[in-house]
Each structure stands twice: as structure tokens, then as C-alpha cells.
């Protein structure tokens, strides 16, 4: 399985949660413990080693929050 890494520019996330619905390994969640500059709970990933670099999250993000690397 390919390995990937995603980076979220948290301050421009609007908390729409679309990325959380398309992740095949289900590692994206809304961080309810934090509020970003815009006033939303930002999307975040903790278990990054499970990321497969499919870019589904970046594909569906309306606000270009996500950068994806694959290795």
C-alpha cells in the first residue's frame, strides 16, 4: 500500500467536514478541542502513518486547505 502524508492549512479550513466523508482509511476528524482563526473546528489527522496518499480529501476540499505528498 502506498504511503502518503497530508498537510492541512488549518487557518483557512471552514469546518465543512467533506474531507472526513471521503477518506478511505478514515483518519480525518474535526478537532473539537480547537478553534481556528475563522472560528471553526479545523479538520486534522493524527494517525498519519495510515495515510495512503489517495488525495480524495484534497480533491473534495472547497477551500484548498490540503497538500498531499506520496512516497
Amino acid at each position: 500500500m502506498a504511503k502518503g502524508r497530508v498537510e492541512f492549512k488549518e487557518d483557512i479550513c471552514k469546518g465543512c467536514e467533506l474531507c472526513t466523508t471521503v477518506c478511505p482509511v478514515d483518519i480525518i476528524f474535526m478537532d473539537k478541542t480547537r478553534i481556528n482563526k475563522k472560528g471553526y473546528h479545523p479538520a486534522t489527522v493524527v494517525e498519519m502513518d495510515k495515510c495512503i496518499g489517495c488525495a480524495n480529501c484534497a480533491m473534495v476540499c472547497p477551500d484548498l486547505v490540503i497538500t498531499v505528498e506520496r512516497f
Binding site: 502518503g4 483557512i12 471552514k14 469546518g15 465543512c16 467536514e17 467533506l18 471553526y40 496518499g53 488525495a55 484534497a58 480533491m59 473534495v60 476540499c61 472547497p62 477551500d63 484548498l64 490540503i66 497538500t67 498531499v68 505528498e69 506520496r70
Partner: peptide, 24 residues
Amino acid sequence: VIFERTKGLTEVETHYCPGCTHGI
């Protein structure tokens, strides 16, 4: 890097509502 912000858009953050597909 297999996905990053396109140069086809400016750096301006859009005014669209959360989840609006205009951004896509």
C-alpha cells in the same frame, strides 16, 4: 507532492459558505 494549491487561483481566501462546491 501530488496535490497542492493550483497557480490558476490567487491566494485570496474565498467568501463561499463552508462546504460550498464553488471552491472545488
